[in-house]
Every structure is written in C-alpha cells, then in structure tokens.
C-alpha cells in the first residue's frame, strides 16, 4: 500500500496555462507536449506523422547584433550561424525553426554537419554525443512573419517557443520553433 508521495512541480505547465489564459484559448495535448519536450521536436513529429523531412530555408554566417549577442551571451559582432528550416511531411509544412549558433563554441565537425548534412540541430547534438542542459525560455503567441505567411499560407497567429541548449556552461544553440495556432489540434 502506498502511503505518501511528493507532488512534482512543473513550471512549463504554468507557462502554458498563462498563455491559455492571456489569449482565452485551450491548447491541445499535442500542442502542449510539443511545447514542453526538451528533446528534438522531430522525434514527436515522427511519432505523430511518420517520418518527416527537413528543408533548409536559409543558412549563412553573420555578425551578431545586440539582440542575438544577448540571447547567446556572446560579444556583439561575434560570428553566428543563422539557420532557418522547415520540418514538413509530404510537402505540408509542420514546424518552422530558426536557430542561432555561436560558431566559436562549436567544433569543425559540427560545423560540417550544420553546413552539409542538413540535419536538425537536435540530431546533430545526438550524433556528436554532445552533453547539454536545455532550458525552455519562452512560450508565446505572435503574428506570423512574411516568411511564415508564405510558408504556411496563412495569416493566423503562430504558437511559438524559444529554448536554449548549454554545453560547457555556455549557450551553444538558441532556437525558436513556430507553427500556426490551428495546427496539431487533432
């Protein structure tokens, strides 16, 4: 007979509840899971839709501006890898992802993966056996960018989360994932 237990606090659920209350909406279980998982989102998409595909929208190096430098905790002007991808199934876009990666904090091998193999950042982390901590920083709803309007063919609001991965106590990836609010409802 089990007599007692300890209630597990979940701050991500609190963030989700806050978004629901602010926008007077109810997120689906699938949406909530996609917002709170700390592993690669493609794993969940595979489970839900079968194998998904990745399409690179843009990838280039650029000097960090003040905002990006603050997100990555680097000096303004330090080089970053800008990575914009769409995960899709049979041509139907599922999730848009934008990542900033400080190039000085990654190895040449990872840089090669980022540039040539077009893997998801989650897969690159796994493939290279990188040990990390992952922190979900923000969950929110925002208006779509022109790129997202073009990709998803909709003007509707986007459900978005931002998370960072640390390695050697430094930020190695900042990622933002977005999809239309009506997606993953069933």
């Amino acid at each position: 007979m089990i007599q007692e237990g300890t209630i597990i606090e979940n701050e991500i659920r609190e963030k989700i509840t806050q978004v629901e209350q602010e926008h007077n909406i109810k997120l689906s279980t699938t949406q909530k899971i996609m917002l709170c998982i700390r592993g690669p989102i493609t794993t969940i998409l595979d489970v839900l839709y079968g194998e998904v595909n990745l399409f690179m929208l843009d990838q280039h190096f650029e000097k960090s501006d003040e905002r990006i430098a603050d997100l990555l905790k680097i000096s303004e002007g330090d080089q970053i890898d800008y990575r914009e991808v769409i995960v899709h199934k049979n041509g139907r876009p599922l999730v848009y992802a934008l990542s900033y990666i400080p190039t000085s904090r990654i190895t040449d091998k990872i840089m090669k993966d980022l540039k040539e193999e077009r893997l998801t950042t989650g897969k690159i982390i796994d493939k290279n056996y990188i040990e990390t901590t992952r922190v979900i920083k923000k969950i929110y709803i925002e208006k779509p960018t022109p790129t997202q309007v073009e990709l998803f063919k909709t003007q509707e609001d986007m459900l978005t989360r931002e998370y960072i991965m640390f390695h050697d106590k430094k930020v190695v990836i900042w990622t933002k994932e977005s999809y239309p609010l009506s997606y993953f409802k069933v």
Partner: peptide, 20 residues
C-alpha cells in the same frame, strides 16, 4: 520515445502527478 522527462509529459496529459 521522448528523451526528456516523462513526468513533464504525464503532468501535461493528466494534471498534477506525484512520485512515490
């Protein structure tokens, strides 16, 4: 299949969960 915490998923699915 998730790599992260299973308790966080259970919490989202079923509300508050406890560990014994």
């Amino acid at each position: 299949t998730i790599e992260g915490s299973i308790t966080a998923i259970l919490d989202v699915l079923y509300g508050t969960v406890s560990i014994f």
